[in-house]
Design a protein around this nucleic acid. Structure first.
Ligand SMILES: [Mn+2]
Ligand SMILES: [Mn+2]
Ligand SMILES: [Mn+2]
Ligand SMILES: [Mn+2]
Lengths: 238, 238
DNA sequence: ACCAGAAGTTAGGCAAGGCTAACTTTCTGC
DNA sequence: GCAGAAAGTTAGCCTTGCCTAACTTCTGGT
């Protein structure tokens, strides 16, 4: 046996206070964070329920519990806002999620349209130690396979400087930075067209009434429907 | 889009019928499997309760539910035995567990005394697809970091041909095949002595009344307590 | 053969989360 | 400014697991 102290479990990875919250609370916190975006409007019960696929009644009950746990402030009938503690919890889960997605893609070769579903489960079940081992293995990465920023170990996250592709004028463009990871079909479609985060993209033409948007990506032209273009984010110019 | 069929989700990894059971059922099935060993005595409620750290009352209730789900046969007051379905479920979890342990150790460099705890959680949360990616990455391995055999994809498991080190006579020995993974302290101790699965081991002397066992491992002598020796398994000779 | 203690089960609770149905509050269009 | 619609909440119920306390069954020693 070495001279190492007995039963002192390393004590390293203790940046965040290791609050143990139920998986439910973690999912709600993440959903609220993502719905809150940056406009600091409170988030409605219905929006949370929709995103999590539960009834408004279930969400209402759960939000009250989150309020008791100091994860949200709840004004009945008006909505919820994350407390700083709730935001930390959300960011912790987002860090787990994105690290896992990248790890699955990079280390295990899982296709980028399938990593999301797996990460959605695993994010709640990895230890802080495993989180750290994954981050180290990946070289403390800044972005996940869909271009989304990964919060730092201290849970700082880069603020979003992108605009939706659907909001660009003809002639506008930039780097295709990120895309929603929640629709595998969509990801496979983009992949099959060779459209991936990091590519330069430019709007060539737009049709009115939500018509397709013609873009060029690395030389090729594509006509993208508005729902798709809404989920693709491009670096803000200027 | 390629000519690949739409929405047919690959259909590969479907060897086992993908029964979804609650995490509780998975843990109970695994516990019963491991208590059952090979002596096909039925397993008592108390033994299950002990191993899972719940009260006998809780185990009793749960065993009844497992019986309803056809995972065990339950004779009240006499004990339970796994059904074939229950055994498949147990082996599935054991495969997950041991693949995850090896993966964490080999790919992420997690020390062998810490992989068990992490695997204990993750085994319930990886998809069949991820299981397969891990197995492939590791080259369809046969043993985990503690020397325990990993069930095949078809859930066949090699039967145990080892004896406890504590049961060997002086002069007996063989290959140190495997060691219980449930006590991190013990694993660290063995590791610090350079005693690892695969090493040749021989009993040099024994003291009566559960006294220490003197063994030689790759040239060095060690005195091991009986509780430790009971958890170390050595290849059966002859 | 009996009976005490060990082992197992039942009864009654609790906490998380989900549901539906019914009720309340807020918002909106006239 | 008010009615009806939309949004949110409450009430009552369910499932999964766990608990303690009380009861039942089994077993081993005399
Ligand atoms: Mn994702
Ligand atoms: Mn963390
Ligand atoms: Mn499997
Ligand atoms: Mn293990």
């Amino acid at each position: 046996m070495t001279a190492a102290p007995e039963s002192v479990p390393d004590a390293a990875h203790k940046a965040h206070p290791e609050r143990r919250h139920a998986e439910g609370a973690e999912n709600y916190a993440k959903a609220i964070y993502q719905l809150q975006a940056d406009d600091d409007e409170p988030v409605g019960t219905g929006a949370v329920a929709d995103r999590l696929g539960v009834t408004p009644a279930s969400a209402s009950a759960m939000l009250k519990r989150l309020a008791d746990d100091n994860l949200v402030e709840h004004s009945p009938y008006r909505g919820v806002r994350l407390t700083p503690e709730g935001e930390q919890l959300a960011l912790e889960m987002i860090r787990h999620h994105r690290l896992i997605e990248l790890f699955l893609a990079e280390v295990l070769g899982m296709p980028w349209d399938r990593v999301h579903e797996e990460a959605e489960v695993l994010e709640h079940h990895i230890s802080e130690e495993l989180e750290e081992l994954i981050a180290t293995k990946l070289g403390q990465p800044a972005r996940d396979p869909h271009g989304d920023p990964i919060p730092s170990r201290e849970l700082d996250i880069e603020d979003d400087r992108t605009v939706a592709l659907s909001d660009l004028e003809v002639g506008g463009g930039g780097v295709f930075e990120r895309v929603s990871d929640r629709d595998p079909e969509m990801l496979r479609y983009l992949d099959s067209r060779g459209i991936r985060p990091g590519a330069a993209i430019e709007v060539r033409a737009r049709d009115p009434f939500e018509g397709p948007i013609r873009v060029s990506v690395s030389g090729d032209e594509h006509a993208l429907g508005t729902p798709l273009a809404r989920r693709m984010r491009v670096s803000a110019e200027r």
